[in-house]
Design a protein around this nucleic acid. Sequence first.
DNA 1: CCGAGATCTTTCACGAGTAAATTACCTGCT
DNA 2: AGCAGGTAATTTACTCGTGAAAGATCTCGG
Lengths: 176, 176
Amino acid sequence: MTAGNGRTATGDTVAKVVRQWQTVHPDLDTGPMEIIGRVNRCAALLQQAEDAPLRRAGLARPEFDVLGTLRRTGHELTPSEIARETFSSGAAVTKRLKLLTERGLVERRGDARDRRVAHVRLTDAGRDLVDAILPEQLAYERAVLSGVDADRQHDLAALLGELLIQLEGRLGAPRV
Amino acid sequence: MTAGNGRTATGDTVAKVVRQWQTVHPDLDTGPMEIIGRVNRCAALLQQAEDAPLRRAGLARPEFDVLGTLRRTGHELTPSEIARETFSSGAAVTKRLKLLTERGLVERRGDARDRRVAHVRLTDAGRDLVDAILPEQLAYERAVLSGVDADRQHDLAALLGELLIQLEGRLGAPRV
DNA sequence: CCGAGATCTTTCACGAGTAAATTACCTGCT
DNA sequence: AGCAGGTAATTTACTCGTGAAAGATCTCGG
């Protein structure tokens, strides 16, 4: 079937899967797979292998996301705001903040008026860490993407943005 | 520019994040985020909300992937082959097969020559389930994507395919 | 002013995935 | 033959995320 050399002779993994489905169910419209399947596969590959600079700093991606969120907004955030911003559950944020606090990367402060809420901010060490890692991480990502030429990267980014808007409107805010 | 709906005033979530970073670090090349950030976000949204037809059948996506793999290849597979094909660890496959066997969706058979290996195949019920769910799942996915017009879907699929080839070559098989 | 209900955060119990160790088996070398 | 080393699958111990409930506090109507 295949050329027999190491790589898939024709296209990517998803293309092969689609071809198999076509053989079994020739009348199936497999169009969605070619997008959704590829998005999932890309994300899996990226998440699995792509965070080398982060791991070197002893951080997992979700933890770094918390730090990054604090850094890029530039001000204190409450745990709920962080949860919303990082798309994760409150419970997960609680755990991450505990960890990051123990490592001295973030600090918390109670609200004077409303004692239910906490305010979280980066420590100097936390800010320095983000500023040190982020360029490395971006350089790493740039290397990973370097096989796709600049024009296509641009097109891809634009199309993904369009898709994301649809998904966010459709799945992220189903209630209006 | 606004969709009139007032949610995200300009672009998607990732665009907002990138803009925040530009404010804090104007000289940072955030190009990679526009692709990788969006891929991750799309995958998260899709995985979170997109598998309604599967959940209706009491299956999670990874379990369905096992069934789908068996169905589309059309023949028996060993657990290792399934693991390779679904990009997951052997341990995960063991657990999923246990579950799927209990539900009567797959069967196992020992190899006559090599008693270490097992051969897994779909039962009739398993095959019927896949054949019933897959069209629903694809219809659902088509609906999710329907906000993007057909030409762009095609372009997007092609560009994602190109990216995936790069990632698979670079991350999937780093060593020859 | 008081209590019902809402809101913010944390705790708890659990499910699912992983890496590493384990078990069982095969193969090739001497 | 017999053992060294490799491979297939499973088991084990652990991590991390989630939903649901709890705990603490606020707000507002009567």
